[in-house]
Every structure is written in structure tokens, then in C-alpha cells.
Design a protein around this nucleic acid. Structure first.
Lengths: 148, 148
DNA sequence: ACAAGTATGCACCTTTTGGTAAGTACCCAA
DNA sequence: TTGGGTACTTACCAAAAGGTGCATACTTGT
């Protein structure tokens, strides 16, 4: 998958019909995509939203186990942010030991829906994705520079 | 939006109607979503892909102006990574002053397509998104803590 | 001779991000 | 009394990420 830097001249690709214009009217954002990306900025947030969309109401511990490698500190922090942003609903049953459920709000559901094609893309392009990471493994670590 | 390498997980819970299961068969990823997020990890990469999908072949300077606030250093760096990953094609006309076009590969086109719903979501939920950021402005800066 | 333009390089820097390790509260079981 | 479990809290830290400021190459225009 190494790119070819030779200079064949290719005709400009026509913008596809269903790629929406990035309207610059959104205050403070480059476009709608920019806005969404800033809402879900955070390594685990898209995965949190997606797992909750999949499983419905989920205990903290279940979510913790489903999202491997995340630390408690960061998972709790990002759940708090998602709750404050109105994307996630937290239900504390006030028991001992503590039992807390997390679930998506309608707004969170809609955002999770928008993540579906990204999941589909990753699944359907596993071969290419694997190759991307195999190639990245050859990059020098210090510079993170591709060998193009 | 960034991710990190993780181990495969146990089979997911039953999938909801149109939210696809995060299949654990992808080696090294939590799921397809995890894989995609790692490919486009980098603050400006989704925007680069999206602008190129919209405009077709684009001069470096045009891209630079369309994506506000990015620095030359990082834009160049992320374009290089996208090129090395096979998502973007770079065409150097070898002129002086330099004239270089960037365009999407078919793989990049398909990934840009998967970003469309995120752009749509941000545009259609502008009111909620604005509220999210208005609320975030009240958080204490040092701790980035929501007041829930 | 000098300036402008375009696309890029690079040393150094600041900020952001996610993690580690140890801790907390409180009920119940041993 | 001690330990277990769950869902967190907190101080501190290292790495990653993005940015700043200055530089480069080379043709053309003034």
C-alpha cells in the first residue's frame, strides 16, 4: 500500500453527489463535521457511544470490560463529559456495593447512528486497515514519519 | 479522536436493529469502529478527507485555507501520513513556484463517505452542539470537569 | 538586487491527553 | 477484624500531539 510519488497527471475527481458541503455558517466551527468531531473528541468516547448503542443500559463494570485497555480514571472522566454533554444518562441505584447503569440519551443514540458507517468501513476494509498498520510499523518511531 | 492498540474482546451482545455488532474478529482492534478511528486519528485528518471528497483535486494552498487554524507543519505531516496510508494521492507538477495537488484515492473516497453522517449530524444538531460548547465553557479549565 | 509566491523542512516549545498508583465509601461475608 | 466487591477520586506523570518561528528552493516580476 506504499504510495507512489511519481507524477502522472490525473483528471480531477468530481465531488460525489452525497458528500454534503461543509457549510461555514456554523459559528465557531469549520463545518458540521468539525462540530461533531469536537463533541466526540476523546480516545474512548466514540467506542463508549457505540457500545452503549449496541447493548442498551450497561453497568459500569460491563462497559469497563467491553472497552479493553481503558483506565478507570479516564473512562469515568469521559462518561462524565458525555453525561454533561447530554449524550449519556447515568442511573445510580444507590445500592451498596454501588450499582450504576449508563445508557444513551436520544441525542446520544443519534450520534451513535452516525458512527455506524465508520464501524462498517473498518470491518469491510480489514485487509487494507491491517496493511496500513503493518506499514506504519516500519515508520521510525521518533519521527513518526512515513517512508514516502 | 484517537485510539490505541488493544486486544480482541469476547463476542458482543446481540446487535440492535441497525447498529452493527462490533465484531471481535479484527486482530488487534476492539472492533471495526476502533480500527477506523485509529486510521483517521489526528485532529485534522477527517477534515482533510472530507474537504478533498468535496472539492476533488485541491492545491495545497487551497486546502490550507479551507481548513482554518491548522499549521503548515501539521497539515503537511498529516497529508504525508494519509498518503502513506493509501488514502490520499499527491501530484507534484514540478513547477516553480511549486504546484502540488492532493486528491483522494478510492480507499480514501470510501472512508470520506463514512464521514458523511457525522457531518450531517453536526449540521442538523447545531443547536444542541452549541449548547454543549456553551456548557463546556462553564467548566473549570484546569480540571476540565463538568458540573454534574 | 530584492521581493513575491508556493510548498515544504526543522528545532524547539507548549498544551493536551491518557495513564499509574494509591486512595475512598460502605455493606456483607468469613 | 479483615477482605471483597463496585464505582469512583486524586495527585502526579509521561507521552503524544499540535504549534511557533524561522528557514529553504527557485522562478518571475519590479
Amino acid at each position: 500500500m506504499s504510495s507512489d510519488r511519481s507524477d502522472p497527471i490525473s483528471p480531477p475527481a468530481q465531488a460525489q453527489a452525497d458528500v454534503q458541503s461543509c457549510t461555514p455558517t456554523l459559528p465557531g466551527f469549520t463545518c458540521g463535521l468539525d462540530a461533531t468531531l469536537r463533541v466526540v473528541a476523546g480516545k474512548w468516547k466514540p467506542l463508549i457511544l457505540y457500545f452503549l448503542a449496541q447493548d442498551g443500559a450497561t453497568r459500569y463494570g460491563e462497559l469497563r470490560r467491553a472497552i479493553r485497555d481503558v483506565s478507570d480514571k479516564v473512562l469515568i472522566q469521559q462518561l462524565k463529559e458525555l453525561e454533561a454533554d447530554g449524550l449519556v444518562k447515568r442511573t445510580d441505584y444507590k445500592e451498596v456495593p454501588p450499582r450504576v447503569d449508563y445508557n444513551l440519551t436520544p441525542l446520544g443514540q443519534s450520534l451513535a447512528q452516525a458512527l455506524v458507517p465508520l464501524c462498517t468501513w473498518g470491518t469491510e476494509h480489514m485487509a487494507e486497515v491491517s496493511q496500513v498498520f503493518a506499514e506504519r510499523a516500519t515508520w521510525t518511531r521518533r519521527e513518526r514519519q512515513p517512508t514516502v
